[in-house]
Amino acid sequence: METAIRKNTGWRLFIQTILGRAYPRVVGMAREKSWLFFEIFLPMLSVSAYVFVYRAIGAPKEYIGFVVMGGAMTAFWMNILWSMSSQLYWEKETGNLALYIMAPTQLMAILLGMALGGLVATAQRALAIILLGSLAFKVEYALGSFWQLLLVFFLAMAALYGMGMMTSSLFLLLSREAWHLANLAQEPIYLASGFYFPIKSFNFWVAAAASIIPLTLGLDAMRQLVFPSGALLGFLSVKVEIAILFGLMVVFISSARLLLGKMERLAIREGRLTESRR
């Protein structure tokens, strides 16, 4: 006697796909313990080096906290670059991309699952970096509004992962250059987004242009909310930054949806889904 298999359709299938794709990100990544270690240990090395640079030049104490928080946020940017934007390129290299396209579900749900899983797994690493960095360098916090902090974090993450989903559709068309372009987007973004210093240090228009990366305003607002002198070194007021982050979230997620369909059709037409140009 055959067992009847209940097949989900519609929004149930959409949710099932999201959870299915998020699973390996959360559970799978935790299985390889050495990855967990290195993903916390490596950013801690950079954080420590920058903390000692600030100490060498006699920076005020809160700058140490800025570095620790910026260092933790690098985990999210690395996740966006290597596990969101360029993920479809990796999937193409390993032969999974064609399976995703063939599967009776939506690519958008697969990307959302990647984003959700990546966010949860990376948040654990970022939290570990903040805890270790704060303990090692005795960072002092003065929390302003917890709810605003939570809101800023979630808006920044939604906008950031929306941006990752959008760029992943562009990477769908790339081949070998994907690796290099992702590699190129590390230090310049650390610089432009003020990962290790207040973004206010830049000229207004440079800081405004850098704000297209959601982590720029997210990091600035979070620093304003958790450090005693954060507001003095903030770029815009927290409320304005929350409003801009909300706008970025809407723009990036809708663009991701539009671009994904367009790029998928283009990639199919040009035969890019199964190519492997090593």
Binding site: I57, A59, Y63, L184, E187, P188, L191, Y196, F197, S201
Partner: peptide, 22 residues
């Protein structure tokens, strides 16, 4: 561009950090 932008950005992070404080 790739060979220039990446290293200069890395150096610029330290330059901005130094410049802000001093």
């Amino acid at each position: 561009v790739y060979s220039i932008v990446k290293p200069l950005s890395g150096a610029a992070i330290l330059v901005v950090m130094y410049s802000v404080i001093t």
